[in-house]
Nucleic acid binder design. Structure first.
Lengths: 196, 196
DNA sequence: TCGACAAGTGGACCGCCAGTCCAGTACGTT
DNA sequence: AACGTACTGGACTGGCGGTCCACTTGTCGA
């Protein structure tokens, strides 16, 4: 599991594959970034990609995890208002801004995750478990909402707020550089939520 | 274009295909409802399905259009609060309720639309134009928001609000019969929006 | 009533993709 | 140096959306 215990060539290929995926995602539409294309761009065989990441979903999640790492750290141990210490309302606003920024900076990746989620073979019965990053974000947002508005079904409200990050039209706004508008729209909704 | 001018057998097959799609969507996961499966279930050839609807997306949009017809009528010419006459705020709340109800009643269809959108070959350059039904809903919501809050970027806020209808986690809540919670969560957001 | 022609039909076919398989390769350990 | 194992690559599979075209069948004017 920890990358440090992997064979040197495996580590090298892991990095090459992640870098190639990033590169392709930055220059092509997500559904054009096939696993084979990634393998070719990384200079490895298709089997290697699947051996390492298991599936398209696994590859995308891993890439997303790297991108979301610093935000996760900031939320858990960083300084307020993102980190612990500030009142929940402020933390929520800060988180929304941060998350929109993160998604905007990685336009194609969220779309690719969504694409992978609907494309990936659904052989197993546990069907739809969202990717771990979404789960973490949702848990955080729901907890903050619950702290300010215990009267609301925080889980559901959190899902609705985060839905924008998976919606095609919003993703397109972000690609078009309208990240600031999306963030401010979300802020308006959150503020309205907090002010009873 | 008008279905009445079609040959009798073509009309019959059109209905059979739509009915079969509905049936399959109600009993299987959307990504398992392949065009071939639809053709078989309808008792026609694959070519007929494509001749009539052009693509997977076209089929799903057509089905959605039928389902959304009565809502569209109610909004344009029906009685308040859904139809014209009531203040924008009330119309917006009524519309949100109605739309959540509609989506809940057609669980699989929205997911299938989303799936079609990401799956469908993207040969042409006009890339992402959302399906007409989403466009209509968005225009309506944006207009109502603009009427109550001219200071906000109504388009963007409308996209964020409607995003829930395309988000997998929310769609799952709806499938689980939690439609009422989703509707109330959206109401809370809208109310917060309207109360400055 | 009938014949002709456009509209409708069906299913073989194409290219593409996620994911599998396994024979071969090369790293790290002793 | 020699060995076992984890890693590697690419041919292969199954299934998809969509195309093609020879064939059939409603429709409508004469």
């Amino acid at each position: 599991m920890p990358h440090e215990r992997m064979r040197a060539d495996a580590q090298r290929n892991r990095r090459a594959i992640l870098a190639a995926t990033e590169e392709l995602l930055a220059t092509h539409r997500p559904e054009q970034v096939s696993m084979e294309a990634v393998a070719v761009a990384a200079g490895v065989g298709k089997g290697t990609v699947f051996h390492r990441f298991g599936s398209r979903m696994g590859l995308m999640v891993e890439l997303m995890r790297e991108r979301a790492q610093s935000l996760g750290d900031a939320v858990e141990t960083g300084p307020p208002p993102l980190g612990p210490g500030a009142p929940p309302g402020e933390r929520l606003l800060a988180f929304v801004d941060a998350v929109v920024g993160l998604v905007a900076r990685n336009k194609g990746l969220l779309a690719a995750l969504g694409h992978a989620a609907t494309t990936t073979t659904v052989g197993h019965d546990d069907s739809h478990d969202a990717h771990p990053i979404y789960r973490a974000w949702h848990a955080h947002v729901a907890a903050l909402i619950r702290a300010e508005r215990p009267d609301l079904p925080a889980d559901v409200v959190a899902h609705v707020l985060l839905a924008g990050l998976q919606s095609d039209p919003v993703l397109q706004l972000l690609s078009a550089g309208e990240g600031a508008q999306v963030a401010s729209a979300l802020r308006v909704l959150v503020v309205g939520l907090l002010e009873h």
